[in-house]
Write a protein that binds this DNA or RNA. Sequence first.
DNA 1: ATCATTACTATCCAATTAGATAGTGACTAT
DNA 2: ATAGTCACTATCTAATTGGATAGTAATGAT
Lengths: 126, 126
Amino acid sequence: MIMPDFIYEHKVYYNPVEFAMHFIGGTWKMPILWRLNHRTMRYGEIRKALPHITDKMLSSQLKELEKHELITRKVYAEVPPRVEYSITKKGKEVIPVIEAIRNYGLKKMKEKGLKEGGKPKLSPEK
Amino acid sequence: MIMPDFIYEHKVYYNPVEFAMHFIGGTWKMPILWRLNHRTMRYGEIRKALPHITDKMLSSQLKELEKHELITRKVYAEVPPRVEYSITKKGKEVIPVIEAIRNYGLKKMKEKGLKEGGKPKLSPEK
DNA sequence: ATCATTACTATCCAATTAGATAGTGACTAT
DNA sequence: ATAGTCACTATCTAATTGGATAGTAATGAT
């Protein structure tokens, strides 16, 4: 059985995996969803939780996640501004997927961390 | 609890998801593994099964998968050459991960295929 | 001699993704 | 008057990924 191509928003996807990654792929989408699954967070809080992310990446990824309805954005009319992001029901559907990937990554980290070059490559907790 | 950075082969990974994707990410690795999980295949068979892949992509991705021990390569001393690729035990560990992503993709395809613009965007089977 | 077969390499180029850096608006506190 | 807060935009550039195209080696078949 051959999976036919799938066209969505002017782009061709060759298989379901590729299509799934359109929604949750890239460096930051899963880490963001993972955090928001724990709790609703403000923009600045997410940024702190993801130490290496830049503003450009954070705001563009939040926008795409919102567009795909995996998160919601709530603005409070205050100064300085307050904006809160929450995961949606659709967003929660990707959590098991993230868990599967994440567990595999953790397993690989332990595997590689213990094997390569004697000393573990996990940097020490501060 | 903050996940510390992880260094592997001179590259920094910020979280387990990113690290996992180092092994199974990119457009072709999962589709290849998925096929090889069904059965051992020759180079040319894999290429036929993945209609849009180029030689460059196929051979480079097979090399990386072999390097990470997710597949094995067996060369037969024949002319014209025959090379067979098989999934390994380690490779089979990623199958549940692929299944999770794939199922999510299939779900999204149905969701979008049925909703957007009336007619489904799944091209008809030939 | 030439062609066909198979599993590749080797280049080059285009597109996408991500990072660095600086700036904005509105109000509040000093 | 100035500085600080917060959630962003706007540019520009660098790096990575992937695609197009052509070529190779060894042998048997015509």
